[in-house]
């Protein structure tokens, strides 16, 4: 079976295929994080920055597995990717964009905060940094436009927190699927 057809089949199960112990296992990103599924493309410090950014942007994004979600999606062919980057005209491979964005965030954070990367900032500092990034006002920023990085990572965080069946349930919104995922995402 061709790869995309296989995934077209697998999407009916509603989860992503993560490698666990050499075997493919269907998990939600949150489950993948909870089980400590190894990252395929992101480095540990990149995942740490994504989680810190995600949590600042949308509460609960860390637990919902934003880093595992992005790691999975940048590790598969772009034509199969489910990232909002795809509809925001980001040019594949998507890993390039995330690397550039995360690098810009941490470089700017370190320059402005005595060598501390974004994940090492306290909550108030993280909020202040993100608010400046949103408005393209981070001093010394070098990388993709801060406002666009904000938009894209915020979208990823929204996806894992509010775009799932659990997210709808938490808001009290009926999900009403025509074709329901058999798992909760």
């Amino acid at each position: 079976m061709h790869g995309i057809e296989r995934r077209a089949f697998m999407q009916g199960a509603g989860a992503l295929a993560f490698m666990v112990g050499g075997a493919e296992v269907l998990l939600t990103p949150g489950e993948a994080r909870a089980q400590g599924v190894p990252l395929r493309s992101l480095k540990p410090d990149e995942a740490e920055t994504i989680e810190a950014l995600g949590e600042t942007l949308v509460p609960d994004a860390r637990k919902a597995g934003i880093a595992n979600f992005i790691d999975h999606q940048v590790s598969i062919p772009a034509e199969e990717a489910l990232l909002e980057a795809r509809i925001l005209n980001v040019r594949p491979p998507y890993a390039n964009f995330y690397r550039a964005a995360l690098g810009a965030v941490d470089r700017a954070s370190q320059a402005l905060n005595n060598g501390r990367g974004f994940a090492q900032l306290n909550e108030a500092e993280q909020r202040s940094f993100v608010d400046a990034m949103r408005q393209n006002k981070v001093e010394g920023w070098q990388g993709p436009a801060g406002g666009f990085v904000y938009l894209l990572l915020r979208s990823d965080a929204v996806d894992v927190v509010y775009g799932t069946m659990e997210g709808y349930a938490a808001l009290g919104i009926p999900y009403m699927p025509h074709i329901a995922p058999t798992q909760r995402w």
């Binding site: 999407q11 199969e80 909002e84 074709i179 329901a180």
Partner: peptide, 14 residues
């Protein structure tokens, strides 16, 4: 049957 009800999965047809 590929058109699963999800904004996330819906990006496959973009």
């Amino acid at each position: 049957s590929d058109l699963i009800s999800s904004d996330i999965w819906g990006r496959r047809i973009k």
